[in-house]
Amino acid sequence: MAELIAWVLVVVIAAYACAGGTDYGAGFWDLLAGGAERGKRPRWLIDHAMAPVWEVNNVWLIFVLVVMWTGFPTMFQAVFEAMWLPLALAAVGLVLRGAGFALRKPTHRLAQRRIYGAAFAVSSLLTPFFFGAVLGGIAAGRVQVGTTASVDAWANPTSVLTGLLTVTATAFLGAVYLCSDARRFGADDLVDYFRPRALAAFAAVVVLALVALPVTHDDARHVWDGLTGGMGLLLVVLAAVCGVATVYFLLRRSLRWTRYTSAASVALTVLAWGFAQRPYMLPTTLTVTDAAGDPETLKWLTIVTVIAIVLIGPLLVLLFRLDTKGELEPLTDADTQAARAPGDNL
């Protein structure tokens, strides 16, 4: 039962990486969109693409915390004791990001819009970095039961590279999804705007992954061995295939499948990390069995999880389906043309 709950945790982390990661990626491109005039249309698309579902994606994060706290309290305590600072910074980033996004759209004064927009964009960069740094520190074995908080726990080479990989992966997802949204909204100029950015983000992911190979070999050997053999290696290969397929579809301007292939590449990478860490929750000191809570608690957690999946899962699928079909926030041709800024060169 502990093994089952552990895999539920990994799958939910993968879901958050894909769903929430897309929103972080949109914020990343918001940050790089330029000044008020030049960035008007990209930010218009980001606002309309994110507005219907952006709050829903944090459900996955809450689910991760609840399952981790309830099912694996020993791990929860160890991680939050050793990593309280980056996790606190990520939490602050979540709050500022949500506030910035919610307040920017209804605000009419340009100075205030810039402040709220900067809070949203910068937090969209820093929050995934800190989450990635925490995962990197765990993978490198920097977190053990009784480990006190230190900079080395999350500012080591593996953590930094994992944080950067997380940021670039979200940028890749965000640009790919925004390409599809631009096509859906009839804004073909924005397809041409985000398509090269998606390709550039994928290239950055590849470069960082190559840089991470020797670092992981020396700094996180258990995870390295898991990623270079068995099921971990198979999932890494499948993730790479999905990434290359996304690039192929982008180059051919065939955007129908890019959402699925890009999300699959990220989800498969997270699952590969889960297989690579087996049988540990904290390599190489705390196994899944040792980290598990009381058997009775795990039994009820399993029951509640199944009920949540049965009741909430279909609703989330329906929500995202309605969003991709434009049923939640439909736009008219007049709206898409009105968003074009005079003299805006994309």
Rank of each mutant, 00 (worst) to 15 (best):
V167C: 10
A200K: 06
R197E: 11
T162N: 11
R197W: 07
A212E: 02
S159N: 05
L164Q: 04
G163V: 01
S159H: 03
F194T: 01
R184H: 04
V160S: 00
A212M: 05
A171M: 11
R184W: 02
R184F: 03
V211M: 08
L173F: 11
V191Q: 14
F172S: 10
L210A: 06
V176P: 03
A155Y: 10
F194R: 02
R183K: 14
T158L: 00
N156I: 05
T170E: 10
T216H: 14
L190H: 04
G174I: 12
L213F: 15
D189C: 05
W154Y: 07
A182Q: 07
T162G: 06
A209N: 09
T148R: 07
G163N: 04
G186W: 04
L161D: 01
L173D: 03
A149G: 13
A149F: 10
P196A: 03
L165W: 00
L190C: 11
A212C: 02
T168E: 10
N156Q: 08
A200G: 13
G163P: 02
R184N: 13
V205R: 14
V176L: 05
A212F: 07
A212D: 09
T170N: 15
A212W: 00
D152H: 12
L178M: 09
F185S: 03
D189M: 08
C179W: 02
T170F: 09
D152Q: 08
C179S: 10
D188C: 05
V160K: 00
A187H: 09
R195D: 08
S180K: 14
Y177F: 07
W154K: 02
D189G: 13
V215T: 06
L190E: 05
D188L: 14
R184T: 06
A175P: 06
L164V: 01
A198D: 09
A169M: 14
V211H: 13
L164P: 01
T168V: 14
S159I: 01
D218V: 14
G146F: 12
A175G: 08
